[in-house]
Design a protein around this nucleic acid. Structure first.
Length: 187
DNA sequence: CGCATTTGACCGGCGC
DNA sequence: GCGCCGGTCAAATGCG
């Protein structure tokens, strides 16, 4: 795994690199950054427990040998067929719905077997792009939020755009503004 | 009144 | 073939 939060070369506009310490919400800390596109998808679903994946989405897998949580389910298969990238973050945050610059609409909520915490499903409604994201709390540490983006935005996040206008800044210094995480985009 | 959210039902895929 | 599970849809409800 060479992925890192500072890998701004990632062409996927989904890859919004959250600041390590956004002052507005202070209590936020990026823990893991996972880029799961088609190329590495196989690894992601193999549940070998070698990658950070094991620490995030599959955190509950240890309790249940079955890896039902990360199998290539219907939606994921579409993903493998070329629907788009999948990007997952695990971050320490009190809030689940963070404003990443896009407008999201919640379309579902589901309690999943591997986690005592419900998983929330959002669709991007800004720009009409077909991007989805899942948000759930880490089963082992509720102070962590696991966010999984699926698909590719057809436009950049206002934050990354902002970022691109500041070529002299360190890439990962971008996005620390404008106030990336005003709580909850929706509501 | 309009829009976003909530929540239960339904669907499709996978494992046994 | 059946049951389980994750994901999505759509009607109902609440809030601004």
């Amino acid at each position: 795994m060479d992925f890192s939060p500072t890998d701004h070369s990632n062409p996927n506009p989904n890859s919004i690199f959250f600041p390590e310490n956004p002052d507005p919400m202070a209590d936020f800390e990026l823990s893991d950054y996972l880029m799961l596109d088609a190329a590495v998808f196989e690894d992601d679903t193999s549940e070998k427990g070698t990658g950070v994946t094991n620490e995030s989405e599959t955190s509950g897998a240890s309790a249940t040998p079955k890896h039902s949580n990360i199998r290539c389910k219907s939606g994921e298969k579409k993903n493998m067929l070329g629907l788009g990238h999948r990007t997952a973050f695990r971050m320490k945050s009190e809030i689940e719905a963070m404003d990443d610059g896009y407008k999201w609409r919640k379309y579902g909520k589901k309690t999943v077997k591997n986690s005592p915490n419900p998983r929330n499903y959002y669709k991007c409604v800004s720009g009409g792009c077909n991007v989805k994201k899942r948000i759930e709390r880490d089963r082992d540490d509720k102070s962590y939020v696991i966010t999984t983006y699926e698909g590719v935005h057809n436009r950049e996040s206002p934050y990354t755009s902002y970022c691109s206008q500041m070529p002299l800044m360190a890439p990962n210094a971008c996005i620390s503004q404008p106030s990336p995480f005003s709580s909850s985009s929706s509501t």
